[in-house]
Design a protein around this nucleic acid. Structure first.
Lengths: 351, 351
DNA sequence: CTGTTAGCGCATTCAA
DNA sequence: TTGAATGCGCTAACAG
């Protein structure tokens, strides 16, 4: 920068101004400075700027589990992508901070915030805030936004899809088709998404006046990243039932996909003998056998919105963002669901 | 830090040393300093350290296309994950820099390097080096490593799987099963992976003494992220052929999955009428109908190795890393391939 | 072994 | 409108 100043015949402070606030520098000198900067190939040193200003232009993405990607699910990668793109368009960069790892790595996350490296954080499906001893990300003094999980009760602006409502309406659709008995493949016990989706199912049954025993619940012991295993387990459980429900509803697509894939070789026709509904809308669902009916997460929109809200939080001139933003899921009706067989349910035996 | 020094009754430089090189400070004072730091909840300001040292502990991941995730492919996310984990274990952070956005964003990438924000870069399947005007990532003065794509010819240490060999051996396996006619679903024309995999197929045919016309090539017009569309197009083309090859080989799993999914409803039995082979080893392949035979990319190993090599480059005391590291793909034989039906079309001669 | 001193490159006072 | 001076928090010389 000193070189630029020298070449343009001005002081470094003028160069600084010309670059930061073009309005406060005369047209002529600004042109000289810009030309000089161009000629010298000047690139501002962001590290020095950060030190001086006391804030960086880096935002941290705090990811949920050890895995960015698991099974067939693209939801975390898609959200991540969308967040990164939106931030990039606004001059910010995204640093990824995986959880999972050693305690040292866990400690690292709040330190990034306190240490001035990151300016804000976006929690992508993270269940708990990283903390180490007394210091937690929550009191690190940087703005935080949560996507996918609703943490508005903790005062953290959240951008979510209305999983509960989506599941309720989808199950009501199945009920409308004639289904009266359900098999539910639960997500990880205690997880946010499991609570919402399972709740939506319950609400639908209640709304239709069906008793609790209309649904056989299974699973809950697998993490989201082990969706395929969960689906296989669930399939075995369903196959072993004396009275098999006519509709299987999974907490997430991975489980639904593995479920279908496991029951079909046992002579179960989907959707003839059994309708299957997934959740998440993973792209490959359209190419499963049969194509999987599911509820699509608006991943791109969620990510973009979350980034926008963080940007508002970062901009002191901006209005206060909403504490909770809810986007609709999309019901993708595909061949895996249909009306149940009528006229006496006779379970077909495996060959 | 001044506060810590004051509380411990030492100079700031001593605090700095105690934290950075514990060996060069006496046991007693070091304990006092650590206690004081703990008590005050001191966290070093990384921005200041970066400025002073002239290097950050942030590494940039340069991603290929607009999409981190597409179709069913988890290869980029998986590599990303592995890179992030390995870096994190060594005290480094990962910044993600998406390509293909506005020109401004493209310019941003080299600037991050020159501006002192990032210390090194890992190209994850990126075809070209980001550049803007004269300035490119290549001459930004930071170490670069490439994963998935071989850029060793350009002097960039590369960590890759041997796609060519893997494809060759897999196709030789199909030939061993009796297949003599192939349908190849090409990847993006001119792309590295397409060249390697297509080349491997050609090598296998040549090795078995089969003529060039033993393979009908299709596609090449779709980007990797449009794998499903590519597979559908290819399926239509295959269905329209008068003499249908008995084996379809896809450049990537997404295409293979959509291909299978499109031909089967037309009465084509897989693998009875047609064997299908994919490439990448996406997890969901095991749950397709039929389960997809494929060549798994060792994503976790690739990512970890790439990160290790970058760490070597960053450490001036370390030995020079190899310019090219090749890891084996794994042939996952699943139900989508089998011997071709005999009787109808008789192979002219067996090799 | 420890304290003193001097900047890293920039943005921001305050004067001119 | 511009220039000169100051320090962000830290580390690396060099002395002591």
């Amino acid at each position: 920068m000193r070189d630029v100043a020298r070449l343009a015949g001005v002081a470094t402070s003028t160069v600084s101004r010309a670059l930061a606030r073009p309005g406060r520098v005369s047209e002529a000198t600004r042109c000289r400075i810009l030309a000089a900067a161009e000629q010298l190939g000047y690139v501002p040193n962001a590290a020095a700027r950060n030190l001086r200003v006391g804030a960086s232009n880096i935002v941290m993405a705090v990811l949920s589990e050890p895995a960015i990607a698991n099974g067939a699910s693209q939801v975390v990668p898609e959200v991540l992508q969308s967040v990164a793109a939106t931030l990039s368009d606004n001059g910010f960069n995204l640093l990824i901070a995986g959880r999972n790892r050693s305690a040292a790595a866990e400690k690292h996350i709040p330190d990034l915030a306190v240490g001035g490296i990151v300016r804000g954080a976006i929690l992508i499906g993270a269940a708990e805030l990283p903390s180490h001893g007394q210091r937690s990300l929550a009191n690190a003094g940087i703005p935080i936004v949560s996507v996918l999980q609703d943490r508005s009760a903790a005062g953290i602006p959240s951008v979510i899809a209305d999983d509960r409502k989506a599941m309720r309406e989808a199950v009501l659709h199945l009920i409308g088709l004639g289904h009266r008995s359900f098999f539910y493949i639960a997500g990880p016990a205690g997880s946010y998404h499991e609570a919402e989706r399972s709740g939506g199912l319950a609400e639908a049954l209640a709304a239709a006046g069906l008793p609790d025993r209309a649904v056989v619940r299974h699973g809950g012991g697998h993490a989201f990243q082990d969706g395929f295993e969960s689906g296989i387990d669930a399939a075995r459980a369903w196959l072993a039932l004396a009275a098999r429900p006519t509709a299987a509803v999974a907490c997430w697509d991975d489980a639904a996909i593995a479920f279908m894939s496991t029951v079909r070789p046992q002579g179960v026709a989907v959707p003839g003998d059994l309708s299957v509904l997934g959740f998440d809308g993973v792209p490959v669902g359209a190419f499963c056998e049969p194509p999987l009916a599911t509820l699509r997460q608006p991943t791109a929109e969620l990510g973009a919105k979350a980034a926008e809200i963080l940007l508002m939080l970062l901009d002191r001139d901006a209005a206060a963002p909403p504490l909770r933003t809810t986007l609709p899921n999309q019901l993708l009706l595909r061949a895996s669901t249909t009306a149940p067989k009528t006229g006496g349910r006779r379970p077909r035996r495996a060959p």
